[in-house]
Design a protein around this nucleic acid. Structure first.
Lengths: 343, 343
DNA sequence: GTTAGCACTCTTTCGACTCGAGTGCTAACA
DNA sequence: TGTTAGCACTCGAGTCGAAAGAGTGCTAAC
């Protein structure tokens, strides 16, 4: 059995109507609402075919049809019109992102919040630091005798602070010396690149401060490594989905939301081909049983050809894919532009 | 009508049983389960009295009784035994707090998470910085020509980082000088305490770096002030309450959780007499319609006689007050001890 | 003052029934 | 050969009433 244009139109009608109403769609509805020029009986026949092809399904005999995951997939791949995103929404995104008064991460968070509101889905934003950070600047500050603060700036202006216990005899000058040495030797390097001779060089020159160096090095390596491993993830609009009729069961909701609180789950959801720009995972395609009733759309954005972050949208499988994809696209594009302007 | 000891026992039984079962409690249940030595008929009479006094109520004729807000209040004020908190839980809290490897705020967050799990409630932690912070250490670091990082440590080891645009001609030495001057003059002071002559002193000595100082001062004052205004609030276990039978309606849940996402709501919930150490607000006592089915327990902890933070617990009115209060007490005490040790 | 007994109330549960939406199939039609 | 009208059939949702069960309030006896 193959798809002809009429079957496509009917599938599209089923998807669109179901997205709109959340009710199974009957043949009569389609013949009346989407005037395809044929009677409900004909549509019934076609629908039987579509069901046989696995694109739509019946919750029970004598109910209308509902798109299956495969049906949504077909729709997304072949039928979905790149909806002309509402100009307003687009401007909103751009305005939020270009409002430069705040720090980048804040701007991002605001935009995602807005996106969550507009689409009524949950948004996820992921700053991808998976490349293993390199050291940009390190400085030890004497806070009080016996206590120092280590300030570390890694690639991409990310800042980390750690307190450090040091011998009470250490002076400000000692710390400056240590900072300088470490900067000279380790700047621009990843943890993996530290070589034995570099480290020995540091230690040789700083025998007196050896204890501090030791401790600082350990912290530093843990920071650079940890940053590499778990990416920063922010989530917004976690409760938005509660409005959807498919989540009227509290247990379902609880399981879902609890899953989304787990970083591993989010990470897996956000995985995907970073090259194609935008990825859509529908229902079971997510590979996670906890979110089998949800779809995920992820857009990654690049700076200088490297993927530096991802923005994602999680909603029920019955979500407005066209709008969502457009919005995310705009979002990612605007972000890329903003980064470019920034340089 | 006045309370006698038997009425008290019956009220206690109603509260305890309802907390346990979440079902209205009948006279028969009480006479069987809590052997008060009287028959169900007698208990029925007493319950009618208690109802008249407004301490318990009937969802409908021919249902058992349920404690009213006033009933819970009476229980908390007069009947509740300071439950000997499970030693295990106590140790857990202490262990979490005393595990010093992490930063203070992380430790706090972990403890609250644990508390949320044990009590099956939502926990709130609020770092009260309303006093207006004083400056402990300030340092400007040269990141690259034209760009500096300002590191600020305020009272209580709180760290803030801000990037700063500076003239490209500024050297590391310039910044060190500025840092030193600002430290010397402003250390230990709140924004309000800066005096014209102090500032003039700084500017006079640093005409060349005036632009940087200007900018740094502005940022600094905004940081110290902002910290003062909005307190930092962390929430955990927001979904725990979903397990409770009183929240089986999604809409209710949604409203509740959305309210709890608002800082103002949380702030108001956490308000209360900071002197008495622990505050219990039951149902309508919270003054917020959105959380009228919830109770809030707040404990504040002090360092050097000043309240520096609060830990709170939000759950359904039908919550285990005895355990919750004990846990929070332990929590606050352990925190205070931990702060003391720290000094 | 306490208790046993009983009538009464109200919710919950269950099955029977109806209604309506939607289907699949067949036969007629263009 | 594809399309359509018609019709029997299925199944869920909603309604109704009866029965069961839990718990009460009241009364009369102890």
């Amino acid at each position: 059995m193959e798809m002809d244009s009429r079957k496509q139109k009917i599938l599209e009608a089923v998807v669109l109507d179901y997205i709109e109403t959340a009710e199974p769609v009957g043949s009569r509805t389609i013949s009346k609402k989407y005037n395809l020029g044929v009677s409900s009986a004909t549509i019934r026949n076609e629908m039987a075919d579509l069901e046989e092809m696995g694109l739509i399904e019946q919750p029970h005999t004598s109910a209308g049809r509902v798109p299956s995951d495969a049906g949504y997939r077909y729709y997304v791949d072949y039928l979905m019109a790149q909806s002309d995103i509402q100009e307003e929404a687009k401007k909103l995104i751009q305005k939020a992102i270009h409002d430069k008064r705040q720090q980048v991460s804040d701007v991002l968070r605001d935009s995602m919040k807005m996106l969550a509101e507009v689409t009524n889905c949950t948004t996820v934003m992921m700053l991808d630091e998976s490349k293993g950070s390199t050291l940009q600047l390190l400085q030890l500050l004497l806070v009080e005798p016996g206590k120092a603060l280590m300030v570390i700036i890694t690639e991409g202006d990310k800042i980390e602070n750690r307190f450090l216990e040091i011998p009470k005899t250490m002076t400000r000058e000692d710390l400056d010396l240590v900072s300088m040495m470490m900067n000279q030797n380790l700047r621009g390097l990843k943890v993996d690149d530290w070589q034995r001779n570099i480290l020995e060089n540091i230690f040789q020159n700083l025998t007196r401060q050896r204890q501090v160096v030791d401790c600082a090095l350990e912290m530093l390596s843990s920071i650079l490594n940890v940053q590499g491993k778990d990416k920063k993830i922010y989530l917004d609009g976690g409760l938005n989905m509660l409005s959807q009729p498919e989540f009227k069961d509290v247990n379902k909701v609880k399981n879902l939301l609890q899953s989304l609180e787990q970083q591993e789950v989010l990470s897996q959801l956000m995985e995907g081909d970073t090259e194609t720009g935008i990825t859509v995972k529908i229902g079971s395609e997510t590979g996670l049983d906890e979110v089998k009733d949800c779809s995920v759309i992820v857009a990654s954005y690049k700076v200088k050809g490297e993927t530096v972050g991802k923005v994602g949208l999680i909603g029920p499988t019955r979500m407005d894919y066209a709008t969502a994809v457009s919005m995310l696209n705009t979002m990612a594009q605007t972000l890329e532009e903003a980064y470019k302007d920034n340089e």
